[in-house]
Design a protein around this nucleic acid. Structure first.
Lengths: 214, 214
DNA sequence: ACAGTAAATTTACGCCGTATATTTAGGGAG
DNA sequence: CTCCCTAAATATACGGCGTAAATTTACTGT
């Protein structure tokens, strides 16, 4: 009805991103649709196209926004410190973790981090190619740590979530202990973390150990 | 027009899966839609619902089908052997790699493999919980190796693919060598693999090293 | 011969991203 | 003060997706 509203009620790109981020955090990535974000501002979906080229660009920007929260100590952080900082923002926005790998290097913060990580690996004596590969492997594995955290399902809806977990539990509990002694013994782990702190410590340690010796 | 065709022209679940797998291999995962698979058999999309509960079940079955190609030496294979076998089928069907992690443990072959891997890690002296976690990390990281293989884009369409790669190249090549010495030095790696064999060797070695020491 | 079940069809719905064309508020130049 | 340009939205429409529900018909067993 009224194209071009008074300047006071213009959309703001930054605020759109905040909205999208909030949606992702509370209802999962699938809930981040153009219509949903637009609706939150009582606006047509097409209005977003003025602020973002297409949805993919919005997602890129979303990752960038998430990385704004990165807290790197100014002076020469080591590998573990960098990874821990990244881990923190990822755990704060797990829904974004799965779209991060492809997009990380499209953001400025991501490039900075990539440069840092490759540099640190070079300093450990790795060849340029090895350092590059290990950096990618490290980042991807770290992200996988968050995405596949036992108990996470990538589905935000609690009903579906519980259904999935119940199915998983049923499957694991019905295993023949004779045929699957080890899975039986560790079934609880796959259904939910006993200790998140320990989980991330161990994962990180394993990755850094692997890097240090390759 | 003709509900319930003569028995000779019935759909076959296995053949539907073959079709879906072929589509995934040639045109990517996004091309695997119910309509597309149905069209290949000149059949209504709804026909598939007789053979699969829903699309997700079809994807589960697709992963299962892929794992049929797993070739494990019968007697006591070690960790590297198991991972190498998995790597082989994943590289044969890279489009399925991204949906494998969540689904692996819903398949029989996946459970067998999980049992094997956890067992091997237990034998290396890891605690039950540690072995469970490391097995997941290992599998996920291995899969990430395939999904994020430099040059891969998860987009099958060659036009889009090239556009993406060109954008990436442009971005990397325009980096200030002063500010990003390491990324500049290793830019070529991110754009395409010099040596696939070496890439997978190194990735696998790094992961196994990490596991062995944690 | 006939009932019951198996395996498809038809139709419809509500989502999604986005191409295209149109509308209008506000700011700068004459 | 007016005119015009452009910024920023709306309206409309399209094709694609997964799937719910009801219907139809070929075959199987009694």
């Amino acid at each position: 009805m009224t194209p071009r509203p008074p300047a006071s009620e213009r959309l703001d790109r930054g605020e759109l991103l905040s909205t999208a981020l909030a949606i992702a955090d509370t209802d999962g990535l699938d809930a981040v649709t153009l219509r949903r974000v637009a609706a939150d501002w009582s606006v047509t979906p097409m209005a977003l196209y003025w602020h973002f080229q297409h949805k993919d660009a919005l997602l890129d920007a979303l990752v960038e926004r998430m990385l704004d929260e990165l807290e790197l100590p100014g002076d020469e952080p080591d590998l573990r410190t960098v990874m821990t900082a990244l881990l923190r923002v990822l755990r704060a926005h797990p829904a974004l973790a799965e779209i991060t790998p492809i997009r990380l290097m499209r953001t400025d913060a991501g490039l900075d981090m990539g440069e840092r990580v490759v540099g640190l690996l070079r300093a450990e004596g790795h060849s340029p190619v090895a350092a590059a590969q290990l950096s990618v492997l490290l980042l991807n594995a770290l992200i996988a740590l968050v995405i596949r955290q036992p108990g996470e399902t990538a589905v935000a809806d609690p009903v579906q979530r519980d259904a999935l977990l119940a199915a998983k539990r049923a499957r694991l509990k019905s295993l023949d202990p004779q045929a699957f002694p080890h899975l039986t013994e560790t079934a609880d782990f796959f259904l939910g973390l006993p200790d998140e702190q320990e989980y991330y410590e161990r994962g990180l340690t394993m990755l850094l150990n692997g890097v240090r010796l390759s």
